[in-house]
Amino acid sequence: MEYLIEFKEATYTYKSSFVDPVQALKQIDLRVKRGEFLAIIGPNGSGKSTLARHFNGLLTPTTGEVLIRGISTASSDPEQLKAIRRQVGMVFQNPDNQLISSIVEEDVAFGPENLGVPPKEIRRRVNHALAALNIFKYRRESISHLSEGQKQLVAIAGVLAMKPDCIVLDEPTALLDPFGRRQVLESLKKLNREEGIAVVFITHFMSEAVHFKRVAVMDQGEIKSDGPPDDIFTRTALLKAAGLDIPVSAQLAEELKGKGFPMAPGILHVEELVNSLCQLKSKI
């Protein structure tokens, strides 16, 4: 089958006249299918933001290539680059620096306006995007009066209005409080489920990555591991080496296993741990 996004042995080296070149990405091979729900997790400086900027051609690989539905992001045709950026929407960490207009609905319209969509269709898309993210009632609100979490939802709505196949989010929750984080995560789950949009979510919060169907761990410019979360998060040695947290439930299960208790494999969530303990207790 055709992949939505394909990294083929992509490397990226930052060159500057002041310092030695830094290789931020080393031999990245990554494939994203339609409708996937993927988290990329890694410590600061692991290259995850550099990776993010390759998804829509903001950066192009020094060697190797990145294909969006078979088209290279290094394409020099501006129309193709536009098509790539429409298909792969991007949301950044700081909502204040990516919202263009001061009014919610007018910001959401910015993308489709750039695409030359007819006015009536823009209105329809904007309303749909606002409703899908549950912020329709704020449509005339000034952006400076919204909470950080709501601002981030506006940014996602702005991408959604371009009808993308995939949304890439570069640490979108780093500046949010727990409530804002939950809002963003729940909205993404809904978009993935109901609209079939692929989501690539970059974070260093383990507690967020456990919600995804596939997790890739990045460290020192490489993808160290890639698979379903219950597989990834039980590789404690790998996570520790990258300086990442291990989910508390997994940690507890591991400790109990070490003490000789036969815990169920692949425990990630609180419920799984509690259920496993219930079974254990009933056997004793």
Binding site: P78, R85, M90, F92, I100, E105, G111, P118, P119
Partner: peptide, 16 residues
């Protein structure tokens, strides 16, 4: 962010 949202200057833009 503007580049990511397909902004390529004034030509070809429409208005809501």
């Amino acid at each position: 962010a503007m580049e990511s949202r397909c902004y390529t200057g004034g030509t070809g833009r429409t208005k809501m």
